[in-house]
């Protein structure tokens, strides 16, 4: 909610030419480039703390020092800096290489947004632990099939092990005949499974058109949805993005997924909180994955490729109505 509002504010600032001061406008740019991946202004903690009203919580001089060289402050043992470092998983804030003017612009922007909008907790993120869901197909078929195969293997091994209580000479010719049969059976089985599964790949077939195309840009540690492609960090200034979208029920959506920094995994979970589809988000490439959203409900998106300290916090949400 707040996110969208902030972006509308940015757009308004851009289209009405100078409604905001130059200071906060460049602060907005800096925030988007250097801070937004780890901090929000009023949407709760991410990798680092929520910066809503941080100007009221800390002294200006402290903020200026921290923003320009956080690592030196931790090294110098500043009590507040060290406490924050301990509290946020001992992840050191990188040095942003800002000069004093830029740092001021950044703080002015945070103050401006804090003043205009009250803080709110992000929508669509469950906070209380949820009970385990019933296993859905095809995951259930995979698990039960695997258990059946395992039991078969264990039975055969146990049976062979117990046979050693009653030693005898084994007719190797008969055994080799059995091996031939088993090998042929295995071969037929493998070819059958190949024939059944190879046509059911998740890769997009050219002949069909999706109902909707949504571009997804991943970076440490957020997913950004947009109507048009984002090819570089610079594009983020011209393109409206959000980490939450709504789509109509029974819609075939094509996600075009890329990454700006490292590899990420775009994993779409169903309303039953089990994987529905996924593709990798890779810098330099666009992977497109199609998802047919049939049921209304909340579809969480999680990062499925390890991407450093905030990996497990990187998420987005799709609401189907």
């Amino acid at each position: 909610m707040r996110n969208a509002a902030a972006r509308i504010a940015l757009l308004l600032a851009a289209v009405t030419h100078g409604a905001a001061t130059a200071d906060t406008a460049s602060g907005q740019v800096l925030f988007q480039q250097k801070c937004a991946a780890c901090h929000t202004i009023g949407e709760g903690d991410r990798i680092g703390p929520d910066l809503h009203d941080v100007g009221a919580r800390r002294e200006r001089a402290w903020l200026m020092r921290f923003v320009t060289d956080p690592q030196a402050m931790i090294a110098a043992g500043d009590p507040v800096a060290v406490r924050l470092y301990e509290r946020y998983n001992r992840i050191v804030m990188p040095n942003l290489a800002l000069d004093d003017t830029q740092a001021s612009a950044l703080l002015a922007h945070i103050d401006e947004v804090s003043r205009q909008h009250p803080a709110s907790v992000a929508v669509g993120v469950a906070t209380a632990p949820m009970p385990a869901p019933a296993l859905r197909s095809p995951q259930s078929a995979i698990l039960y099939g695997f258990i059946a195969a395992t039991l078969l293997i264990v039975t055969v091994f146990v049976w062979v092990a117990r046979s050693t209580r009653d030693p005898a000479t084994v007719d190797t010719h008969r055994a080799y005949a059995l091996r031939r049969v088993l090998f042929m059976a295995g071969l037929v089985c493998a070819i059958t499974v190949l024939a059944l599964t190879l046509p059911r790949t998740p890769y997009v077939q050219a002949a069909t058109t999706p109902d909707r195309v949504i571009h997804v840009t991943a970076r440490q540690f957020e997913f950004l949805f947009s109507d048009v492609a984002v090819d570089s960090t610079g594009d983020l200034l011209n393109v409206a993005t959000s980490d939450r979208i709504t789509v109509a029920a029974d819609t075939l959506v094509e996600f075009r997924v890329t990454a700006l920094d490292v590899n990420h995994g775009f994993g779409v979970y169903g309303v039953d909180r089990q994987l529905l589809a996924q593709t990798q988000a890779m810098p330099g490439y666009v992977n497109r994955v199609r998802v047919h959203f049939r049921e209304p409900g909340h579809y969480p998106v999680l990062c499925l490729e390890y991407c450093a300290a905030g990996h497990h916090l990187m998420r987005a949400g799709i609401t189907v109505e």
Partner: peptide, 17 residues
Amino acid sequence: MRTAWPGLLLTLLLTLA
């Protein structure tokens, strides 16, 4: 909330037109 787009579009319309 629904997606940001209707809101965004609406704001743009109100501002620009």
